[in-house]
Design a protein around this nucleic acid. Structure first.
Lengths: 229, 229, 229, 229
DNA sequence: CATGAATGAGTGTTCATTCAT
DNA sequence: GATGAATGAACACTCATTCAT
C-alpha cells in the first residue's frame, strides 16, 4: 500500500510533478467538456488514474483546480499576445497573429474549449481578466490598427470587430471541432488541413480589409502572397 | 408569480402554454450557461417561478427538456438555411446569410450558446444532425460556391472553410457576448452595434473572397456597396 | 372527453362496477408482487387501463384500496372456514379442508400472495383479525381435534401445529408458485397437478396423524382410500 | 450507537466489519418486511444507526445490497443442502433435513422472509438460481427418494411434492411467524415450541409417507421414535 | 506524503394526494 | 361523475469535501 519503488524516481517532486500534470490534463478535458459545474472530481481522478482524494490533495479544491487551469490557459494566451508597434508591417503582424492563434487552438484544444466554456457561462472567474488585461491589449492593438488605417495601410474598419473576427474564426477550429469533423466527415484535422485553413483566413482578412505592406524599398510586392508561409 | 387574472385565461391551455414557455426560456438560459450536466432542474424551476416537480410534470425529464430545446434551436437554424441556386447573385446570397445569422444570434443568444455548449461537450445529442442534415446543407452550398468560382464570380476558396468562417464570426456575438461586452466595456450591444458588425463582416467576406455580382445588364457596380442593406 | 356511449350500459353502476373490478384485480396483483409500500398507484392504474386519478376516485386512498383487498381476501377465507363438530367424520373434514384450501390458492393466487405479503410485513393491517376472528376459529377446531384424539380417531398431535401444517403446505402452491414452476420446469400447474398434490397432502396428513373414520355401521374401511376424491 | 471504546478496535477493518454487519442486519429486516421496492435505504440506515450515505458507501447501491443479502441467504441454504445417497437411512435423512430447515428458519428468520418476499415478487433476482442450482438439487434428492420407494422403504409418493411439503411446513414458522404468534397468543416461539413442532413434522412426514429404516441387523424398530432427537 | 473512510448537501425522479373543472 | 393539473415529500444516488492515519 505505502510501498513505492523508490529506486528510479527518488528525486524529490518527480512523482508529484507527474501526478499534477496528469490531473491538470484530465481536468482540462473534463472541465472543457462539461463546464465547471458539470465536471466531477471523480471523473477527473479516474481519467488521471489517481484516487479522488489525491486530486484534492494536490489541488486543494475543485475551484482552485479550475482557476489554475484558467490561469494556465491565460498564460498561453499571453505568450502570443505580443505587443506591436505602428511601424510593423501590417501584413506580417496580422498573418503572424492568425497563424499563432490557429497554432494555439491546435496545440491546446481542450484549454481553448475550457476558455470558451467559461465565457459561455458568463465568465464568473474571468470577469476581471477580460475587463483588465485583455481589454488593455485590445485597445493597444486597436490604436495601432487605426494608425495603419490613417496611413492608408488598411481599410478604415473598426479594429475591435477585426480582432473579434480573427479570434472567432480561429478559435472555431478548437471549440467546434466536433461540428467541423461531423460536417467534413473526417476523423481529425491534420496539419495540412490546418495550413489550408490558416492561409484561407489570412487571405480573406488581409484582402478583405485591404491590408498592405508599407511601401518599403526592399519589399517586393510578390512577398504579399508569400506572407502566409 | 403574482396573482394571475383568472378572467382572461380560462381558455384551456393558456396556463400550460405560459408555464411551458417560462420553463423553456429558463432552461435555455441555465443549460446554455452550465451545460447539460451542470444545469440543475432546481435552478431552472426557480428561474421559471415554478416548483421543481412542475418542471418534470411538463417536460418529463431533464433529458427530454434538453432535447426539446435543441430541437427548437435546430428549427430556428433550419428556418434560415434556405437553399440557393448557382443562378443567384453571390453578393446577395452571402450578405443575406451573414445578416440572417447575426439576427439569429441576436434574437436567440441563449439558444445559440446552448448549441455551442452542446458542441463543446462533444455533441452527444447532435451527432446525427451534424453528420446528416447539416452536412448535406453544407455540401449543397459548397457545390454552388464552387460553380460561382468557376464562373469567376468569386475567388476559388474552399467553400467549407468559408462557411465555417461565416458561422464562427457571426456566432461569436452570441457565444462570447460576455467577452465582447467585457472588452468593449459596454453593458449590451445595441442594434446599431450589430448593424456595424454585420456590415463589417459582409464587407470583409465579400471583398476578401472576391465575390462579385453576375454581369447583369442592369446592375451597376456601385450596388455592391449597397448590398448589405 | 365526457362523451360516453350511453346506449348499451346506461344501467347505473355498470361502468363503475367494471372499473372497480379492474382496479381491484390489478391492485391485487401489484400489491401481492411488491407489498404495500412497494406497490404504486401508477402501476395499478396502468394495469387496470385507467387514469391514475380514477383509482383514487374509486378507492379513496392507497391505504383504503389495500384494506379493501385484504377484507375481500378474508371474506374468501371465511367462506371455507366452516365450523365443524366433534361428531363429524375426521377424514371427511380434514380432506375437505385441504381440498378447499388448495382450491382457494388456485382460484385466487394473487390474493393468497397478498395475504402472505401482509403477514411477512408484520401484519400491520391484520393484527386484529389474526388475534380475534382467526384465533377463535383455530381454537374451535383445536378443541374438536382434541376430542377426536381422545376418542381415538386420530393421534394425539397438537392440533394447532396440524392446522399450520395444512395451511402452509397448501398455501405454498400459491405463494411460492414461482419457485415451484422454476424447479419443476413447468409453465404452469394444471388441474391434474393440483389434484395430484391435493391427494398427496390428504394422504400424508391423514396417515401421518392416524386419522380414522368413526366406527359407523355403514362406512366400510375401504372408503378411507376414496376419501380424497 | 453508544460511544465506542476506541481502545480495542484500532485494528484496521474492525469498524468496517461492524458497520457492514449492522447494515446487512438492518437491511435484511427492512427488505424482508417491505420487499425490494418497498424498502428504503433511509430506514435501513436509521435502523443501522448510520447516515444514509454511509450505507451506499459500503454497499454501492440498493440493488447490490439486496443481491448480497440474497446470496448470503443462499449460502446458508446450501450449507444444509447436503447430498444424500440411496444407501442412507431414509428416516435419518428426512429427520435431519426437517430439523435443519427448522433450525435455519429459527436462526435466520429475516433472511428466510427475505427469500419468501423475493419469491412472492416473482423471483426477479433468483430465477437463475431456482432453475439451475436448486432444481438440480431437487432432482437429485427426488431420484434417491424414488429408489427408496422401489426398495419399499417408503410409499411411492411424488418426491417433489414431498420436498415442497417439507419446505413449506418448516419455512412457515419464519415467514408466517406473525400469524403464528397472533393466533397462539404468544410473544415468541421458544426452543421448546420449536422442538415440539420439529417432532410433530418429522412424525407426520415419516408416518404419512411410510418411511422406514432399512432392515439392518442392529437397528431395532423402536429407534424410529427416537430418530428425531 | 498520500489515500481510504465518511458524510451533509444536492441531484433527477417518482409518489400519493389535492384541486379544479 | 370522472380526470387532467399540480405539488410537497420521499426516493436512490452523486457530489465535494473533511478527517484520520
Amino acid at each position: 500500500m505505502a510501498k513505492a519503488d523508490s529506486t528510479s524516481e527518488h528525486e524529490a517532486g518527480t512523482i508529484r510533478r507527474r501526478n499534477e500534470q496528469a490531473i491538470l490534463q484530465a481536468a482540462e478535458d473534463v472541465f472543457s467538456r462539461h463546464g465547471y459545474r458539470g465536471a466531477s472530481l471523480q471523473e477527473i481522478a479516474r481519467q488521471a488514474g489517481l484516487p479522488k482524494s489525491n486530486v484534492l490533495y494536490y489541488m486543494g479544491s475543485k475551484r482552485k483546480l479550475y482557476v489554475r487551469l484558467l490561469e494556465r490557459m491565460m498564460a498561453r494566451w499571453n505568450a502570443i499576445l505580443d505587443s506591436i508597434s505602428p511601424d510593423d508591417d501590417p501584413v506580417e503582424v496580422i498573418s503572424a497573429f492568425i497563424r499563432a492563434k490557429i497554432r494555439l487552438s491546435r496545440s491546446h484544444p481542450a484549454g481553448s474549449r475550457l476558455f470558451a466554456s467559461e465565457i459561455l457561462g458568463g465568465a464568473p472567474f474571468l470577469q476581471e481578466y477580460l475587463q483588465g488585461e485583455l481589454r488593455g491589449w485590445v485597445e493597444n492593438r486597436a490604436a495601432v490598427f487605426r494608425q495603419w488605417a490613417e496611413r492608408g495601410l488598411m481599410d478604415p474598419v473598426d479594429p475591435v470587430w477585426l480582432i473579434f473576427l480573427i479570434w472567432s474564426s480561429t478559435q472555431h477550429y478548437a471549440d467546434f471541432e466536433t461540428q467541423v469533423l461531423g460536417i467534413t466527415g473526417r476523423k481529425a484535422l491534420d496539419d495540412e488541413d490546418l495550413e489550408d485553413i490558416t492561409r484561407f483566413l489570412i487571405q480573406v482578412v488581409i484582402k478583405g480589409c485591404g491590408i498592405q505592406r508599407p511601401a518599403a524599398v526592399d519589399t517586393p510586392p510578390e512577398a504579399i502572397q508569400a506572407a502566409d508561409r
